[in-house]
Amino acid sequence: MTRALPVLTVLAAIILIWYLAAIGMNAQWAEDQAARAGTELTTGQLIADTLSQDRPVLPAPHQVAAGLWDGVFGQAITSKRSLVYHAMVTLSATMAGFAIGSLAGILLAVGIVHDRTMDQSVMPWAVASQTVPILAIAPMVIVVLASIGVTGLLPKAVISAWLSFFPVLVGMVAGLRQPDAMQLDLMRSWNASRSQSFWRLRLPSSMPYLFASLKVAVAAALVGTIVGELPAGATSGLGARLLSGSYYGQTVQIWSALFMAAALAAGLVVLIGLIERITLKRMGLAR
């Protein structure tokens, strides 16, 4: 309870500020409408109007909640208006990309740890590539792949794979290097082969690093998929919902898609955290 109370207080404050901002930002439109109709609005009417517009500048929290509820529970799952449908499209591409990206990252990290040539050749570029805003070219990748006939889930998965690849690579290299010289010497004194000391020492001790970077990677993969859905032509997925909402001024639709994406990201991170807790506990690494 002592941990929940401050968080709840801050959340309540955020919602309050949000309501005040919604009233302030939507008031202009309500007043314009009233002036056009030649009527005067009382303060109460003005506030009521600002919180219930069709296309508000800033939708009030309850409007977003209603939009989310309608999108999740109010539509058939196969409907184009269902947020569950769009979230599933985004989720499937995210998971495919995340799986490819983290597997590639782990494999390359194993190579880097065991081979000095690979370490010195690839590692500086892997670190430098972190500073390149690669996500910004995601829509281009989609268009180019579409022009050679690759459409659907794969192009988006390529982007999220690329984005989740580097956190896992960097984290796993650090993790596999975690055992210190004394532990490696101990393995050697037991006459352990390279593969034995990999499976029994390096890999287990890299697990905390792996999970920390997987959490970063899954969030990055989701962002990559959503940005990948932005180019015109994409009709399904949360990114396409964002873009069509911004084209038609449907602010409630944008905010519901945004909150759906946030829930998805939170769910994925929590899920990996759960797997982490179980795995580390069974390995006796839990703190």
């Binding site: 500048v57 962002v223 949360l238 909402g245 911004s246 944008i254 945004l258 994406a261 946030a262």
Partner: peptide, 18 residues
């Protein structure tokens, strides 16, 4: 911490509108 993990880039269309 929670917000730092979210796809914040999604607010771009809203802010461009504002």
């Amino acid at each position: 911490n929670f917000v730092a993990a979210l796809p914040i880039i999604g607010i771009a269309p809203i802010l461009v509108m504002w």
